[in-house]
């Protein structure tokens, strides 16, 4: 479990980093390393060059405005999780981060890294997709914003090209009449989930105006389903999802978890929305 040989660069400016990436089609960005290093050690990934972005300036910000939360590429999960401002403006990010790995890993792992690693079992991609967030990307062709719905292509696959660096993720703020909730089921505390659901509900008085749920660890991609008119949200979600089986959860069991978690999380989000709307 030692990586194959690779070149290593630690640029101190974004342009240098982009050049280093652009020069080598087999180069990879190294952020917190909590996903990439295990892949290297098991020789499942053998990039020819690592471009370590930890030396880049001004990327560890967690900026919170009324619009939402902007997380820089070097902000660690733990920094985002510790921010009371983040929780106030978009509590779903905080709710989800509590379920991401363990404290030691959150101290190194970056939130943006998690968003662009696009692991279908990860919490944050589903959260970003559900909230309609986006990622800001720098590349040889300049800066662009990629909406979450265009970001996730397949398991561990995004629409970013190999010479681009994600510099910031944007999680929109929670509206005054909206509520969120989050639940996942993992085999052990801190593990990737067997299935997880995040919900976003908007109310008008007692009426639900819109309701949707983001699913992770269910299908091959983080998937958002609109459940506004669903009578049986679990079944309605299942109709839109293509769950897969693995050694921890059979297909039937995973479907059962969707059936159980979806209405629970929707109800909790509705409750949250009503509290906020009235409060």
């Amino acid at each position: 479990m030692k990586p194959a040989p690779f070149a290593y660069v630690r640029p101190s400016s974004l342009s240098e980093a982009l050049t280093a990436l652009g020069e080598d089609p087999d180069a990879k960005v190294l952020a917190g390393g909590q996903s990439l290093l295990p892949l290297l050690s098991m020789r499942l990934a053998q990039p020819s060059r690592l471009v370590d972005i930890n030396g880049l300036p001004d990327l560890d910000h967690v900026d919170v405005t009324d619009e939402g939360v902007r997380v820089g590429a070097l902000a660690r999960h733990s920094a985002v999780l510790a921010s009371a401002e983040v929780e106030r403006v978009q509590p779903l990010v905080t709710l989800a981060l509590r379920h991401v790995a363990h404290a030691t890993i959150r101290n190194r792992g970056t939130t943006v890294g998690s968003v662009v690693h696009a692991d279908p079992a990860s919490e944050l991609p589903a959260v970003l997709a559900l909230l309609g967030g986006s990622v800001d990307v720098e590349g040889p062709r300049g800066r662009r914003t990629v909406a979450a719905e265009e970001l996730y292509v397949g398991p561990l696959e995004t629409s970013l090209s190999h010479d681009e660096i994600a510099v910031e993720a944007f999680f929109p703020a929670l509206g005054p009449r909206s509520g969120v909730a989050f639940e996942e089921l993992a085999r052990r505390h801190g593990d990737y989930a067997m299935a997880g659901v995040a919900a976003l509900v908007e109310v008008d008085g007692d009426d639900v105006v819109s309701a949707s749920a983001g699913f992770f660890s269910v299908c091959e991609r983080p998937t958002v389903v609109d459940l506004t008119c669903a009578e049986d949200p679990g079944e309605a979600a299942l109709a839109e999802l293509e769950p897969s089986a693995d050694i921890h959860a059979s297909l039937d069991y995973r479907r059962q978890l969707v059936r159980v978690l979806t209405p629970r999380v929707l109800a909790a989000a509705t409750e949250h929305a009503r509290r906020r709307a009235h409060g």
Partner: peptide, 11 residues
């Protein structure tokens, strides 16, 4: 026995 196994037994 995992939760998935127990669910299968119930079914």
């Amino acid at each position: 026995i995992s939760p998935s196994d127990l669910f299968a037994l119930r079914s």
